[in-house]
Write a protein that binds this DNA or RNA. Structure first.
Lengths: 117, 117
DNA sequence: CTGAATCCAGATGGATACTG
DNA sequence: CAGTATCCATCTGGATTCAG
């Protein structure tokens, strides 16, 4: 019935909005890479992440880390023991992205096989 | 031992590269939204997708669809029955993204709750 | 309806230099 | 080490128009 169709479309609209909400937080050339670098190691320093990710500049790393902090996905842990170092780690909320990262990694392998051959 | 650490780091490098391979295909402001629009409905026409996604222009939809086609994620199905219409659908390869989309949708809901309150 | 072409403002992002 | 500031080229993407 028309009612069922309308319901279905409502569901899809919601689904699309929630996917978009996720992407608003994760869009940006490097965010996923940054998250996967941090979650691989648990804690990671600025310069370590800089080395992990091929091609990123410190300017962009700084900017994207700030955005991830605002979205409560990563947090900074500053050790005031000398020498002062800053470690980045996932928040509890950021941790819930691990499944997605893992799936993306698997899909990326399959995709490379598919496209490159 | 140093050997184990080196192995671990090799693993992480691979993992990060495969995540990056995935993102190379999926980056772009609208790609995930386009995929989720198509996979919700099975087949979807250009103008339907245009309506599904808030804020996208036909220029960008056209461009991103082309890139998704090149990456063998979506395919065009042209019906030559009049009036000629073009339907987009996921390829078999594109279908394997459904899990990720679904996870993203779930995470997006949680994220909205977390951030907006 | 399904796009492609053009125009153009504003965002993105790299290189470099600099600070605490 | 962990960033910030500035400069500037390139890219992104919206608006509009046009075509098959």
């Amino acid at each position: 019935m028309g009612c069922k169709i309308a319901e279905f479309q409502q569901e899809q609209k919601k689904r699309m909005r929630s996917v978009q909400d996720a992407m608003d937080a994760l869009n940006g050339k490097w965010k996923i890479a940054i998250i996967s670098s941090i979650c691989c190691y648990g804690k990671r320093r600025f310069s370590d992440i800089l080395n992990d990710i091929d091609g990123i500049s410190n300017r962009m790393l700084s900017k994207e880390l700030r955005e991830l902090e605002i979205n409560q996905i990563v947090k900074r842990a500053i050790s005031d023991i000398h020498p002062i170092t800053v470690q980045y780690e996932l928040t509890e909320h950021g941790d819930t992205l691990q499944t997605i990262i893992s799936n993306l990694s698997d899909w990326g392998i399959a995709h490379r096989k598919k496209i490159v051959g």
